[in-house]
C-alpha cells in the first residue's frame, strides 16, 4: 500500500502541565474521509491545531505527503496542502462573501480574475452563490459555516480539516453539506479529516473513525465497529447507541 497522506506519530501536547493530548498516533490514506470524535475536552481541537500549525507538539512527529510538518507556521501548512476551518467561524466580516473566498483562492491562483472565477464556482457548489456580494457579517450561522468551508476549499487543499462544520445545522442542511463533501471526495479525491459531534454526518461520511478521550486514542476502525466498541460506548456514545 502507498504511503499514507497524513501520518501522526505519538504526538503530545501539554498546557501548563495539563495533558491535552498524549501520545496519539494515526494515519489517513489519500482519498479517505476520516472522523475524529470524542466528548468535549477530549483534545480534538488541540490535535487539530497541531496538524494545522497553530501549536507545535511537545513530542512526536506529523508527516504530510512524506514531509515532516510539525513546527511549521499555519500559512506554511496551508501552502503544503492542508486547509482548515475554525470551530468558531471567523469570516472576514467587513468583506463581501465573494472576496472572502477570493482571498483563499489567491494562494494557488495569483491572478485576481482567475481567483474570482474559481471562488464563484466554489460558492455555487456550496449553494451560497446568490449571496456573493453581501457582507460576510450579514450571513446567518449556517451560511457562515458554508463560507468557512468555501474559503478553506479555495486554497485547493489535498487534506481538508473540518472542525464541527455541521454544528448548528438542521438535518436537511446537514445532509446537503454531507453531499457536498461526498461529491468533492468522489470527483477530486479530496481527503478529509473531520471533528464532529453530529453522528448523522459522521456515520454518513466517514470510512474510518478515531475516538479520542482524555487526550488518548481509545478506539479506531470502521464506523460500525467503533460504535459497538464497549470502551467507546462507555465514555461517549452511551446515550446515543443505546
Amino acid at each position: 500500500m502507498a504511503e499514507p497522506l497524513l501520518e501522526v506519530v505519538a504526538i503530545a501536547k501539554r498546557f501548563r502541565g495539563l495533558k491535552a493530548v498524549s501520545s496519539v498516533s494515526f494515519a489517513i490514506e489519500a482519498g479517505h474521509i476520516v472522523a475524529l470524535i470524542g466528548p468535549n475536552g477530549a483534545g480534538k481541537t488541540t490535535l487539530f491545531n497541531m496538524i494545522a500549525g497553530v501549536y507545535a507538539p511537545d513530542a512526536g512527529e506529523i508527516r504530510f505527503a512524506g514531509q515532516r510538518i510539525q513546527g511549521l507556521r499555519p500559512d506554511e501548512i496551508c501552502v503544503a496542502g492542508i486547509g482548515r476551518t475554525f470551530q468558531l467561524v471567523r469570516p472576514f466580516a467587513g468583506l463581501s462573501v465573494l472576496d472572502n473566498v477570493v482571498i483563499g483562492a489567491l494562494r494557488r491562483s495569483p491572478r485576481i480574475a482567475e481567483a474570482r472565477r474559481k471562488a464563484g464556482l466554489i460558492l455555487e457548489r456550496l449553494g451560497i452563490a446568490e449571496k456573493r456580494d453581501l457582507p460576510a457579517a450579514s450571513l446567518t450561522l449556517p451560511d457562515r459555516k458554508r463560507l468557512e468551508v468555501a474559503r478553506a476549499l479555495a486554497t485547493e487543499p489535498r487534506l481538508l480539516l473540518l472542525d464541527e462544520v455541521m454544528a448548528g445545522l438542521r438535518p436537511t442542511e446537514t445532509d446537503r453539506m454531507v453531499e457536498v463533501f461526498r461529491e468533492l471526495n468522489r470527483e477530486t479525491g479530496l481527503t478529509i479529516l473531520l471533528i464532529e459531534h453530529v453522528m448523522r454526518a459522521v456515520m454518513a461520511l466517514s470510512r474510518e473513525i478515531h475516538v479520542l478521550h482524555h487526550g488518548e486514542l481509545i478506539a479506531s476502525g470502521a464506523p460500525d465497529e467503533v460504535v459497538r466498541n464497549p470502551a467507546v460506548l462507555e465514555c461517549y456514545l452511551g446515550e446515543d447507541a443505546a
Binding site: P91, F92, G104, I112, R151
Partner: peptide, 26 residues
C-alpha cells in the same frame, strides 16, 4: 487594492489568524 497583496492586507485587517490559515504569510 486590486493586487494579491491588497486582498491579503484586508484579510489580515479583518482576522489575522484566519488569514494565516489561508496560507498568508502575515
Amino acid at each position: 487594492l486590486r493586487t494579491r497583496i491588497g486582498y491579503y492586507w484586508l484579510a489580515i485587517r479583518e482576522d489575522q489568524q484566519a488569514a494565516q490559515a489561508l496560507g498568508i504569510n502575515t
